[in-house]
Every structure is written in structure tokens, then in C-alpha cells.
């Protein structure tokens, strides 16, 4: 089993590694966005799939990262590189401040509160509160990444930057899953009372999930703004949040391959069927219903039991 999965992973890695050399620019851009969205979906999955928090406002953190880079670069003339750390840290800080007062809410109440944060965020952007966000049109003319006089301007560079970002994200996911932090999130998710009785602070680990998730989404947002050299509010509205939410559940909560499959289905397939503009969301909705009925835990559900080998010696 392990070998089969590793084989698939290796083949995927190879394909995605050479992908830019075999496609046109439109598909290259789709590939880059797929990588960026995968990062966001993974970060949503930390909060939703691992900690089990019904969070439907994740596009806000994605947008915070994107707008941080856009504002720092376009409004203040700072290089993109200088915005990387703030694009991660600001969403983390906002997550901490906003999630703090609502983290104790029960599932559905929390769901609508997070939708609320997302909607407020969009209104703040559209109403151009501090004259920084560019209102409904957003911000244009974001620079490319420059390092030692070198410009990472071409779409191929964008692709590989996103590729590296996804690599970092996957590394974090793997570390998280094999640490007391990731496990604590699962315990809370499966049985809050039992988890508390084992000494797990529900509040601490739910906030931890929120903050880490927001940081990764922020990094992805920064990448996204550079890829399109523009940001605008509608790319980060509740509809996007619902998409990330759905990606996780359709693919399989807390499952790394599941989330990749989910992103592929929810983002890449609609691009493939662009010609069928009018009917495609109808089919899409039907597919969502059918997937859930046939595979209620997602297309590739999570498998537990990922324990060190020396504990498996007696397993038959």
C-alpha cells in the first residue's frame, strides 16, 4: 500500500516538475493557480479537516496575504520580497484576534461567524477604508519578485515559485500530522470531551490550527497577487471560501491526496469545461451531491494508523 502511494506521488511529482515545458501559457497559468489553490486548500484542511472547526471564511486569509503584498508593493513601493513575511504574519495575527472570541462557538454558529468575517473583509476592501485597497477594482501593477538584480518575471518562474510553496506547505502538513499538535487537533475533532480529559486544551489547539492555516493561506495569497500582478475583492469573497471548504470535503478531510484531488476537481475541471459556460455549474452542483452520496468521507478519505514501524511488529 505504502509503496503504491509513494509510486503515485513520485509520478505526480515528475509530471508536475516538467509540466511547464509541455503546455501553452494559458494552461501554465492554470497550473500555477492550481498549485497556489492547493496550498490554500491544505491550509483550510488544517482548520476544517484536522481541528474540525466549521470554517467557511478562509478566502479572507488568502486575501489578506494577497492585499498585504499588493499594498506594500504598489502603495508603498516596497519590493515583493519585503512583503513576504508580513503577508504571512498579518493573516496569522488577524486569525488570532478574530478567532479568539468565537472559537468556543458550536459548529454551525462558528460557521456563520466565519462567513461574517469574510463578508466584513470584502466590504472593507470595496469601501476602500484607508484609501489603500483600491475599492471594488482592486490594485493593479504589482511587481515581480526581484533578487540580486534578477527578475523572476516569466510565467515559468511563477510556476516554480508556486511549486516550491506547495512543497513547503506539504512539508508543514507532514510535520504537523506527526507532532502532538496535529494529533491534538484530531483528538478534538473526534471527541472534544475525551480530548480534554486527556489534557488537550481545545481552545489552544483550535487557535493553533487557525493561526497556522491563516499563515499558509497568506503566503499563497502573496504568490497569487504576484502571479496575476493584480488583486481585486471578488477573488477573496465567500464564494471562494465555499470553494475551499468544498474542496476539502469532496477530496477527503485531512487526506493529503484527497485535498489535491479536490482542488483538481473543483478548480481545474471547470477550466477544462469552460466552453459549456452556462450549464457547467449545474453539472457541478449535481456532481457535488453525487460525490457526497457515493463517498460521504470524500473521494480519497484519510487513513489513520500512521505509526512508527516498530509498533507494527505484532500486527497481523
Amino acid at each position: 500500500m505504502m509503496n503504491k502511494t509513494s509510486m503515485i506521488a513520485l509520478v505526480l511529482l515528475l509530471i508536475s516538475g516538467v509540466y511547464p515545458f509541455f503546455v501553452d501559457s494559458a494552461w501554465l497559468a492554470i497550473g500555477t493557480t492550481f498549485l497556489v489553490f492547493s496550498c490554500v486548500a491544505f491550509s483550510q484542511d488544517i482548520i476544517l479537516g484536522r481541528a474540525g472547526v466549521f470554517h467557511m471564511g478562509h478566502a479572507m486569509f488568502f486575501g489578506l496575504g494577497a492585499y498585504t503584498t499588493a499594498i506594500m508593493n504598489v502603495q508603498f513601493g516596497l519590493p515583493i520580497l519585503a512583503s513576504w513575511a508580513p503577508a504571512v504574519l498579518i493573516p496569522m495575527f488577524v486569525a488570532f484576534v478574530l478567532a479568539g472570541p468565537i472559537i468556543h462557538l458550536r459548529g454551525d454558529y462558528l460557521l456563520v461567524a466565519t462567513i461574517g468575517f469574510n463578508i466584513i473583509f470584502i466590504q472593507v476592501l470595496e469601501n476602500d477604508v484607508f484609501g489603500l485597497t483600491g475599492g471594488p477594482n482592486g490594485i493593479f501593477g504589482i511587481d515581480v519578485v526581484r533578487l540580486f538584480g534578477f527578475e523572476f518575471a516569466s510565467q515559468t518562474y511563477m510556476y516554480y515559485m508556486a511549486f516550491i510553496l506547495l512543497g513547503i506547505t506539504l512539508f508543514i502538513m507532514r510535520t504537523l500530522d506527526r507532532s502532538k499538535f496535529g494529533r491534538a487537533m484530531f483528538y478534538i475533532n473526534k471527541d472534544e470531551i475525551a480530548a480534554q480529559s486527556m489534557g488537550v486544551s481545545v481552545r489552544y489547539y483550535k487557535l493553533y490550527a487557525f493561526i497556522i492555516g491563516a499563515g499558509i493561506a497568506g503566503a499563497a495569497g502573496s504568490m497569487f497577487s504576484v502571479q496575476y500582478s493584480a488583486v481585486s475583492p471578488e477573488a477573496f469573497d465567500v464564494t471562494q471560501s465555499i470553494m475551499f471548504f468544498t474542496i476539502v470535503l469532496v477530496g477527503g478531510s485531512a487526506s493529503l491526496p484527497g485535498v489535491l484531488i479536490g482542488t483538481f476537481i473543483m478548480f481545474v475541471l471547470p477550466e477544462v469545461f469552460r466552453e459549456f459556460e452556462t450549464a457547467r455549474y449545474l453539472v457541478f452542483g449535481l456532481a457535488m451531491i453525487l460525490t457526497m452520496i457515493l463517498r460521504p468521507r470524500g473521494i480519497w478519505p484519510v487513513r489513520f494508523g500512521n505509526i512508527p514501524n516498530f509498533l507494527k511488529k505484532d500486527v497481523k
Partner: peptide, 21 residues
């Protein structure tokens, strides 16, 4: 009898179906 969030996704899908119909 499925996990609660699966039904939520199904509801979101149903919303899309009705809206686009």
C-alpha cells in the same frame, strides 16, 4: 447517517443546481 459536513456540501451543490436551473 453520513458525517454532518457531507450533507452541507450536498446542500451547497443543490443550491448550485437550483440557481443554475
Amino acid at each position: 447517517t453520513a458525517p454532518r459536513l457531507s450533507a452541507v456540501v450536498s446542500a451547497l451543490g443543490a443550491g448550485l443546481v437550483i440557481q443554475n436551473s
